[in-house]
Design a protein around this nucleic acid. Structure first.
Length: 198
DNA sequence: CACCTGATTGCCT
DNA sequence: GGCAATCAGGTGA
């Protein structure tokens, strides 16, 4: 491992692990898309873990359907679903193939192709600080459901950045079941001071 | 800054 | 038919 980023095999092995561990490990990784020659990317700073039949808050809780089908794919599969009929949300499938667990990408820090993301979002602030916004800024849609984040157009880059010293842990957002599970992970990249301005 | 509400589809019971 | 892994804009303290 003389490279600055992990190899595809390393990434696959990492993603095959327990979803809770994977979710934590995804913090500070980069998430990059490349469409039509335009590259955009973020550093992931907020993630939630979702299990399978054992997790009442998971889309896979009631078994396999057309929508959640890609959750049952091999680790590293992208699971994209439509939220509230309006937004797209992206997950990275974890665990062994056939186990429907996935990590929902909830937020990130824009680092690559910021102008492109601003254009896609139609604003210059709050580009990727929410699961729907993140997909919008990166150009991720249902077309990319089922593709691989290891060698597809939507790619995860593990390593290459030092991990954040502090990770905040709390309950998942927007769910009504299993709200007692602290499966939401937020990286404090900036050091946690006030960002307010304007 | 915190809380509240309307918009808008797909999916499941 | 009802609810949902959300967002944006408005209101009030």
């Amino acid at each position: 491992m003389t490279d600055d980023a992990a190899t595809s095999r390393d990434v696959l092995e990492f993603l095959a692990g327990d979803v809770e561990d994977v979710a934590r490990g995804l913090l500070d990784c980069r998430f990059v898309t490349e469409f039509n020659g335009k590259t955009t990317g973020i550093v992931i700073d907020e993630v939630e873990a979702y299990g399978g039949a054992d997790d009442p808050a998971s889309h896979a809780y009631r078994g396999r359907t057309d929508r959640n089908d890609s959750m049952y794919g091999e680790p590293g599969t992208l699971y994209v679903y439509r939220s509230y009929g309006v937004h797209w949300c992206a997950n990275i499938v974890t665990g062994a193939e056939g186990e429907p667990s996935a990590a929902l990408l909830r937020g990130g820090v824009p680092i690559i192709g910021v102008e492109v993301m601003e254009h896609r979002r139609g604003r210059t602030d709050h580009l990727t600080d929410g699961p729907g916004k993140l997909c919008s800024a990166l150009g991720i849609t249902g077309e990319h459901d089922g593709t691989s984040v290891i060698d597809g157009p939507v790619r995860l880059i593990v390593g290459a950045l030092p991990h954040t010293a502090r990770i905040d842990v709390g309950p998942r957002v927007g769910i009504t079941a299993a709200t007692d599970r602290p499966w939401r992970f937020v990286a404090r990249i900036g050091g946690g001071s006030s960002l307010t301005s304007t």
